[in-house]
Structure formats: structure tokens, C-alpha cells
Amino acid sequence: MTHQQARHEREHGDPVVRTGVLFFSTPGCASCRTVRSIIARLDDTGEVPIVEIDAAADAASAARHRVLAAPTLLAFHQGIEVARRTGPASAEVLGELRAAAAGGTALGRSTAPRGLVVLRLLAALVLLLVGVLTATPTLVVVGAVIVIWALAPLAHKVYEFRTR
């Protein structure tokens, strides 16, 4: 750990992971206990560390990393988030996250819940369509806001790609 990373950790309370996986958990989370037990069984080579952060105790760090649910795993390569997984994770998924962090490449398959994004987009499009057909500006605005909300993670990834 460099002096700058140690100072950041002291000032902000969250560890700086250049290359590794952050595991955000909460004390009462059953899925977090399962992921924790899988991590304990993994072969720890030390090349790609998995650092656990209690999201309830360190809400500022969870907010800074846009963690909204537990468990959430974030893979970092050279300080850039390359993959994210929210929800229960198997040993295979943990291995893929470690490989993504080590290689700096995004996972071959999406770690975002696609069904939820598709559902948000469909709901937004229905609201937009009904709002336009009935000339109800409120529905049009709500539909547009939901479209932006559903597409925000994609826009964030595009921005990260362009700033590399």
C-alpha cells in the first residue's frame, strides 16, 4: 500500500483497492454469510485480494461505491471498476470477478440483473406511450425519468470506458 492509499484510507475510511475485489456485506444478510463462507474456502493466492466491508458500519464507503444492496462485489483493476455483482455469488462467479480484476477485462457475461433493467425500460415505455396517447404530461415525465434511471448504469460504463 502506498502512502497516498494509506492516507486515503485514514481520511475516508474505505480501503483503496488498486487490483482486487471489494465485498460489501451487512451483519444480518444470509446471502452475505454464504458468500463469506465461499470466500473462506477459496484458494487464497494473494494476487487478487477480496476485502470485506461492512456496508452498515461504513455507509459512506457504500455510498461512494454506489452500493444499494448486500451482498455486492466490485472488481477493480488498477483502481478502475471492471465488474460488479449484486446478490448471491457462487465460487464460479467469485473466480470470474477475481479474473476480471487480475486481467482488467469486464466479465464475459453481464453481472447486472438484466431482467430488472428490461422491466424498468418496459414500464417506462408503457408510461411514455400512455402519456403521449392521453396527452398526460405527468406520465410522459415519469416515463422519461424511469428511462434515464434504467439506462444510468450503461451511461456510467460508457463514461468509464472513454476516460481510460
Score class of each variant (00 low, 15 high):
residue 1 M to E: 12
residue 2 T to K: 01
residue 5 Q to M: 13
residue 10 R to F: 07
residue 14 D to I: 11
residue 18 R to N: 14
residue 18 R to A: 12
residue 21 V to A: 03
residue 22 L to C: 05
residue 29 C to A: 00
residue 31 S to I: 11
residue 32 C to I: 05
residue 33 R to Q: 02
residue 33 R to G: 04
residue 35 V to N: 01
residue 36 R to S: 14
residue 36 R to K: 15
residue 37 S to V: 03
residue 39 I to S: 00
residue 40 A to G: 05
residue 42 L to C: 06
residue 42 L to D: 00
residue 43 D to C: 06
residue 44 D to C: 06
residue 48 V to G: 00
residue 50 I to V: 15
residue 51 V to A: 07
residue 52 E to F: 06
residue 52 E to Y: 05
residue 55 A to M: 04
residue 56 A to T: 11
residue 58 D to A: 11
residue 68 L to D: 10
residue 75 A to L: 01
residue 75 A to G: 01
residue 79 G to C: 02
residue 81 E to C: 05
residue 84 R to L: 12
residue 86 T to G: 01
residue 87 G to V: 06
residue 88 P to M: 15
residue 90 S to L: 09
residue 91 A to P: 02
residue 91 A to F: 03
residue 104 G to S: 09
residue 104 G to W: 00
residue 107 L to H: 04
residue 110 S to E: 14
residue 111 T to K: 00
residue 112 A to N: 10
residue 115 G to M: 09
residue 115 G to I: 14
residue 116 L to Q: 11
residue 117 V to Q: 10
residue 119 L to G: 11
residue 119 L to I: 03
residue 123 A to K: 06
residue 126 V to L: 14
residue 126 V to H: 07
residue 127 L to V: 02
residue 129 L to I: 05
residue 133 L to Y: 03
residue 136 T to K: 11
residue 137 P to V: 10
residue 141 V to R: 07
residue 142 V to L: 13
residue 142 V to K: 05
residue 143 G to R: 00
residue 148 I to Y: 13
residue 149 W to P: 06
residue 149 W to N: 13
residue 152 A to P: 13
residue 156 H to M: 08
residue 158 V to P: 08
residue 163 T to D: 09
residue 164 R to V: 11
